[in-house]
Design a protein around this nucleic acid. Structure first.
Lengths: 219, 219
DNA sequence: CAATTTTCTGAACACTGTTTAGTCTTGGCG
DNA sequence: CGCCAAGACTAAACAGTGTTCAGAAAATTG
């Protein structure tokens, strides 16, 4: 009997409609405007209905965040396409950085929800990553890219995973400081920020390039 | 008549009592537990009273954040003292990084409030920085330290301010990713995180060290 | 058709930030 | 001292929040 399947499908459809409504409200009017009632109004259902599809606002937000990571994946693919299919690993690494920055600039509220939320991110992310899902594929991609750069002799690092963390940290730090307004006095425009990102990746890159001279190592 | 002055003093005292109560609630029970009513209960006043001292919850939080930056200043002084008074600029730079990381680890909820709040931080910080107050002294200290390292020929950079931003970004990114749980699967312990911070500063440092070989500069 | 199961709603509950009318307390002055 | 004005403070209310749940509505079944 295909009727149960249709119901399953409809249930799934409404579920994603709810997530999309939440995403749109965040993008359009910011996180503060996101309430269960505003979502309900948008999808033209009663607030209580949402609780038939999500246990919590937290669970719902987790789904929104997951969708955010997928959306960021699109930015990454786009920027990789710009770099060209035959770009070397370092260029691809820089493309990843640009994608991250661009995503944050063009989806500021969304970006902040993804990274500045309390237990949501933690729980969701741990679960997702343990499952090896596609949500955190971006991180694996970063590791792989850096690994390729190491294999090609372009980066000199102990291990790619640590390098990926450092590169992610640098990008994420600059970005989140900027989108939260902490750099407003120094970095007034988006262009200035993007220029800063390039310089930052220069600094990392030049520290990771192989060199002939001995490396002084404090402590 | 010293009576008006006493009143002024008492008013100021209660004001800071409110800020301290807010800070303590954040530290003890997290940001979610911070409500005007919970503050009022803690200081044994009615909720409405708080509005005689602060226009908003936002203004109050701004004061809390300001106090947070001062508290971080203490961590910096402490770590600088550990490095010793005659440490070179690079060692001092690394001490600043350690202080930042340590502060975040030991005051996680507080740290997140300082950096993950919407317009509060923005408004407050811009005001504070324009006024050249001591709140953002940490940032100036970072710039000065890097400038000293450049003067001593330890770092090779275009300008110290950009270098400071990059260093801050790196530290802040790693730290905020860690405290928000995004690195939980890779960096399980505080010690592992502190080790990562050291490695990250190694990477920056080795990129900024002067070198004899030509510097390849993409774009 | 009636019966049953699923989906949905409206109202309620406890909480939030904030405002305001009214009540205490205090200091100044005759 | 007593009175009064000024200030500090409170209790109650308002609109909003997330969440629950008894019951209505709708859809599926026999």
């Amino acid at each position: 009997m295909g009727i149960a399947e249709r119901r399953e499908r409809e249930k799934e459809a409404l579920r994603t409609r709810i997530v999309e409504a939440a995403r749109d409200i965040i993008s359009d009017r910011g996180l503060d405007a996101l309430s269960m009632r505003s979502i309900a109004e948008r999808i033209e259902y009663s607030p209580g209905t949402i609780y038939l599809y999500f246990k919590d606002k937290e669970e719902l937000l987790g789904e929104v965040i997951k969708a955010g990571f997928e959306r960021m994946g699109e930015y990454i693919e786009e920027e990789l396409a710009v770099a060209g299919p035959e770009a070397d690993a370092v260029s691809q690494h820089r493309a990843l950085g640009r994608a991250y920055a661009r995503f944050a600039l063009e989806n500021t509220a969304y970006f902040r929800v993804m990274f500045e939320l309390p237990t949501v991110a933690q729980v969701e992310c741990v679960d997702e990553c343990r499952g090896g899902e596609g949500s955190m594929a971006s991180e694996n991609l970063l590791v792989e890219t850096i690994q390729r750069a190491m294999d090609a002799g372009l980066y000199q690092l102990e291990d790619a995973e640590t390098g990926a963390l450092i590169a992610w940290g640098l990008l994420h730090g600059l970005t989140s400081l900027y989108v939260s307004g902490h750099l407003a006095m120094t970095i007034p425009t988006h262009d200035a920020f993007l220029a800063l990102v390039e310089k930052a990746m220069d600094s990392l890159g030049s520290g990771w390039e192989p060199r002939e001279t001995a490396r002084p190592n404090g402590s």
